[in-house]
Design a protein around this nucleic acid. Structure first.
Lengths: 340, 340
DNA sequence: TTTAATTACGAAATCGTTTTCGTAATGATA
DNA sequence: TATCATTACGAAAACGATTTCGTAATTAAA
């Protein structure tokens, strides 16, 4: 009546527990006939091995954690899809942790993961507050992890990122070509690698085209929605001439659209905007939004592949020095929002 | 040098393993002084209890599973956010499984979860193929689960759903009031409770207003994107007069928008459309999309609360007969896509 | 035929916690 | 003072699977 475990199988078959276990794992020590019997009964009784007993003994959980800033975000959902596609193949389980962009929460989550609950971690950092201790603890504990999109470059761990600098440069040059005179970079915070690289590309392009510093603006919108709305609205209130906005994240572009609608600014006539985004509706917006689109699914897939490779090689000689950094390319989609 | 476990703490403090364990759990058997010592050393050595040993012994995992059809979907991401908000409070972990709308995959996932890996399951069903065996196995194993959005009504489990029938009725009446003469219901499949209820509301409204059957069309688009594009495109090719579309899911509305753009159908002039959707950009589309918006976050939150309540009461007398069904309301947002 | 190797299994330790049960030592009660 | 209750702890048995090690029985090699 109770749960069916190895002991029960063993008793039923007049075998020892060890024999049954070995049979289930197709050990060479067990003869084919016995294996068949065991497998047959296991199937018949619908035997399901207790994952905790197994994990405890083998010291491996067949589980990975994904730590992301937020989930209601096209980019991260797509990344998870990519991760899941790999994990599923390898029969791994995926735990999701959301930091809500709060570095302290990320720290707390990672610290919790030190207990061995997972075999590896995929992280998109919520911005370091100069406190990288938790990453070092992961390394010390020998728990493999891989950064994606938002990496901490000080930490010796593989990362899967995109060509943010080049994309930023390209997007900005596009705005310049479309005769913008004033330029805004919408940032979430200055603590996130990917966003900073985009900003670097933005600034480099403007320098390269000798744009005057006084025509260049950086808005750090932060993660509070109300505040960022206000910040952007205030900036747009006396609308700078021929304004070109480069939004580092989708959310801020969407907010800008809402504000433009609200205070009746015409895109692209009075304001041009291009944004990093994985919006499936970018082409359907009014006007269609020009985007830099990251290969989100691939990012997740490649990051997961890297992680599983690390997990597999855990016993092997530490080749930690060879730090793989995979850089994927974003794609520029020019649409109406940056038309002349 | 090695992992710090209870045994190590015990040795260090000249205490027994049991005493340390009890101290860590603040047992009344242990005097305050000893507790303090244990806690202090635990903190100092950064002791983290092994979750598998604990789970094995207590037969509880502090983990729940969320089984969803897809993740790159605003509705489900928001639901997860709601779930996570509750789980985090209760220090539970959240495993995510994606069925990709394939009932067999759902079945396989659920069967796997029978091994006790999780204390409970939240499910949005991928449509039953008349095979509910896996749900019955969950019940038999005593693993609590709660349906959300897409429930299987034959199964005796709590569910958190929305007023799909009423919403469908309301949306359809809205299309009727806007003088549509032909009506289309865009469905994913006829195996999903929520979608069928929406369809029932759709049909009831049309009956109520004496709309001729020949002006009513049901399109089952299925989950294959290419196929559904074709199906919709073909239907729109000789465009029925004064067409009103009620899309049961966001994705199909977005596809319809793409097609209208492609073959130059003007919304709302030639075609009016309203859709269930949690798109943050619904108001920014060209034209702004009228939507029925489900309280996705609340759905997740309430479903999780229900589940945790079930988990907590697991030992108690089975009040399984009292089947809680929580019905939340969707909100109708009328926008340009259904203007006259 | 004797010895060595192989085959096929079982006993028992182990993973780290939790929990039951037992018991010294102390304090309270009659 | 004798008895009982309480306090504060320890020994050991779980939880279920894995793995090491040992060993009969059989087969192969010398």
């Amino acid at each position: 009546m109770e749960n069916v475990n190895i002991k029960k199988l063993a008793k039923e078959l007049n075998l020892s527990v060890s024999t049954v276990s070995k049979a289930l794992h197709d050990s060479y020590e067990i003869k084919a006939e016995t294996k068949e019997k065991v497998l047959a009964l296991a199937k018949q009784l619908n035997y399901q091995p207790n994952p905790f007993a197994s994990s405890l003994r083998r010291n491996s959980s067949k589980t990975i954690a994904v730590v992301i800033p937020e989930i209601a975000h096209n980019f991260f959902s797509l990344v998870i899809n990519g991760i899941e596609s790999v994990a599923e193949d390898l029969k791994y389980h995926v735990l999701i942790y959301i930091t809500h962009e709060i570095p302290e929460k990320e720290e707390q989550i990672i610290k919790h993961l030190l207990n061995g609950r997972v075999d590896g971690v995929l992280i998109s950092s919520s911005g370091s507050t100069n406190n990288n201790a938790h990453y070092h603890e992961l390394i010390q504990k020998g728990i493999p992890f891989v950064f994606f999109d938002r990496a901490i470059f000080d930490i010796d761990a593989p990362r899967v990122i995109t060509d943010d600098y080049q994309a930023g440069f390209q997007a900005t040059e596009h705005l310049i070509n479309r005769e913008c005179k004033n330029f805004v970079f919408l940032s979430l915070s200055n603590q996130m690698s990917a966003i900073n690289h985009r900003k670097d590309g933005f600034e480099a392009a403007l320098r390269h085209h000798h744009v005057n510093q006084s025509n260049i603006h950086i808005l750090e919108a932060g993660t509070d929605e109300t505040l960022s709305f206000q910040l952007i609205r205030n900036f747009l209130k006396p609308l700078p001439e021929l304004l070109g906005i480069f939004s580092s994240v989708e959310k801020l572009a969407v907010q800008t659209y809402h504000i433009c609608k609200e205070i009746d600014i015409q895109i692209p006539k009075q304001l041009k905007i291009i944004s990093f985004s994985n919006l499936p509706t970018a082409a359907l917006l009014n006007p269609a939004l020009s985007t830099l689109t990251q290969p989100a699914f691939s990012i997740g897939k490649e990051a997961a592949k890297l992680l599983f490779q690390r997990i597999k090689n855990k016993g092997k000689i530490q080749n930690m020095t060879s730090l793989p950094q995979l850089v994927l390319n974003s794609t520029l989609f020019i649409r109406e929002s940056t038309q002349i």
